[in-house]
Design a binder for these strands. Structure first.
Lengths: 355, 355
DNA sequence: TTGAAAGCGTTACCAC
DNA sequence: GTGGTAACGCTTTCAA
């Protein structure tokens, strides 16, 4: 009665490694060896097992494997971005996915909306799910919490922004150099009254870009406290309103440096509304789609989000491999270059040249 | 020797439910009850357990729990998109994440690049990871494989495109109505020679939009076989080249219907290159960023990707709840309306009116 | 109200 | 080469 019944491979019920072993007439460990590509299995046996797996349509249970595996890899990665629907972040995301897929690693993506609490909650959720590694954009003022929340064997790579109170690999753009470059470009056209428009000042990149703006202005003799710099512009609408106001004032700027893609969009809208797009110069940080089709084309300092994503993912896997081998790599701060793309808006000269 | 040692809560090593139980002086089942909010635990006991959990910083292992749990929820969801960096898809992604986060569900996102093999591989990877549900954009010609690959208790919602050979909930735009609307809009301006530019014909939405285009043209007496319709334009570059060629021919169209966002971008580039953007009419399907800042503004049939994502995620969770309660909901085909947004390019009249 | 014991589906260890 | 058997960290079952 308890003997092997000759039921055909019926029910789509749940197929386990045991059924496969029984059907193939081998031990369960042998099946395990085959699926994991371990040595010490006769070619013929392996073939038979593979055939059985295919016939029974068995899929190994990832959770069960990870439970016992010492080298525990969930083949899973946690990615935290400003927002998955921001073009800059989405490009990073895609590049990371392209690296991860080669290792059969799946990506959990989360948006943080500049909310420190959400950053911590997302990291905790990733850790609970035992991700192999983390690629993080940070919103919180300090990343010291990571030391207690993330196990030491889980590598972390920061992307786009440098962390505070925590040391780990970072991949980011040359924000300082880029914003200096952008500002100098406007100064070189003869502009002296240049308005700098920035995102919320709590964001690391926003601070860096503001610093770059200030440095370039200082080179031309403008003291930091005399800067026409507006921070905390969190939406295109806020940027638009600010530009409308600035240009209405008696000391209106002749040029604008917009330090983030959404701010650039708002600024362009404002200039159009006033019909002054051929009159007031504009350079933006981070590229914008269709920037070349607008009249005038928008001059920007373009970042390399795809390269950033790729570099971050590759570094993460290097760390993973190194740590499994026993020696973690030292943290590296990778800075990617940015490119000034001249399309017209940044090459407008002031109506009454200062120089 | 084997008695309980009074080691202080040392090593950040791995804390398990057993340690917590031992420290709190209760059985492990009681700890389990507390973390899962099950009844039959004295308030004082529960409090003591919670205190111990906090002190030991224990995080339950999600994989271990899911192994034995019958009601197995990994609080995980698989999302397959054309590409995570396409703005349309990225907006859907964000909307889904916003619904999922309320249920503490994490989202695995994957891109398929219109590759049928990648679709299947991605779904298998999701299933292996025991996701609670799937939201899929499909590239394969048939989704019949899902019946064998996806366990019946895992709900599937299709987004953007209808599946073939498989029945499940679908959330999509009114592609047929939208493309008819777009084409009629051009016809109403007096255009009769209208070129239709489409994505690869294997894609469901591409077929639908082509059908809508054909129907509207037929209303004005143009037979399907006389249509100026170009398919398989997979990149903006291809679209641009096609438009350049079309406009150079003796029977050049006076208007263009571009059936996808990247095709629209290519078409605009071509028109600019020829300096004919104020001369040849253009209506695109799916909105494009900064379309209002270009001169002329691009008239489009706008979809509602955020609403699509939200609807799909909500439907998925409804199905999940219903199935756990024992009665799956019948499959529904939700069709979201599209909106004609007139910005100028679609309102250009033919130089030599036909009517 | 509580906890001991028996799984869940896989991999690790060690005999054969 | 091969296959038992004991984990892995938790939930379920069931007896106390």
């Amino acid at each position: 009665m308890t003997s092997v019944s000759d039921q055909p491979s019926t029910a789509r019920a749940r197929v386990t490694i045991r059924e496969v072993a029984r059907e193939a007439g081998v031990g369960i460990k042998t099946v395990s060896r085959v699926v994991n590509g371990e040595p010490n299995v006769a070619a013929a046996t392996a073939e038979r097992v593979r055939e059985t797996i295919a016939r029974l349509q068995w899929e190994p249970d990832a959770h069960a494997s990870n439970l016992r595996r010492t080298n525990t890899r969930t083949r899973t990665l946690g990615l935290l971005l400003g927002s998955v629907d921001n073009p800059f972040a989405a490009t990073i995301h895609r590049a990371i996915e392209d690296v991860a897929i080669h290792r059969d690693v799946a990506v959990f993506a989360s948006s943080l909306d500049e909310d420190p609490a959400r950053e911590i909650a997302a990291v905790e959720a990733f850790v609970r799910r035992k991700v192999d590694g983390l690629i993080l954009t940070c919103a919180a003022g300090s990343q010291s919490y990571l030391a207690e929340v993330v196990p030491p064997e889980v590598p972390i790579v920061f992307i786009d922004r440098e962390p505070a109170d925590f040391t780990a690999d970072t991949v980011r753009s040359d924000n300082l150099g880029g914003s200096t470059l952008a500002t100098r470009h406007l100064l070189a056209q003869g502009h002296r009254r240049i308005a700098g428009l920035f995102d919320r000042s709590a964001i690391w990149t926003s601070q860096q870009r503001r610093e770059g703006f200030a440095r370039a202005m200082a080179e031309y003799g403008v003291a930091p406290d005399q800067l026409d710099a507006m921070s905390d512009l969190t939406t295109p609408q806020a940027a638009e309103a600010t530009v409308l106001e600035l240009l209405g004032s008696p000391t209106a700027p002749t040029a604008i440096f917009s330090a983030q893609n959404r701010i650039t969009v708002g600024a362009v809208h404002a200039l159009r509304k006033l019909g002054r797009q051929h009159d007031v110069a504009l350079v933006g940080f981070d590229d914008v789609e269709l920037a070349d089709l607008i009249d005038p084309g928008i001059t920007v300092v373009a970042q390399r989000p795809a390269a950033m994503g790729q570099a971050a993912a590759e570094r993460l896997f290097e760390q993973l491999d190194a740590r499994r081998a026993g020696d973690p790599l030292p943290a590296v701060d990778a800075v990617l270059p940015v490119d000034l793309v001249c399309r017209g808006s940044g090459e407008i000269r002031p109506s009454a040249p200062t120089d």
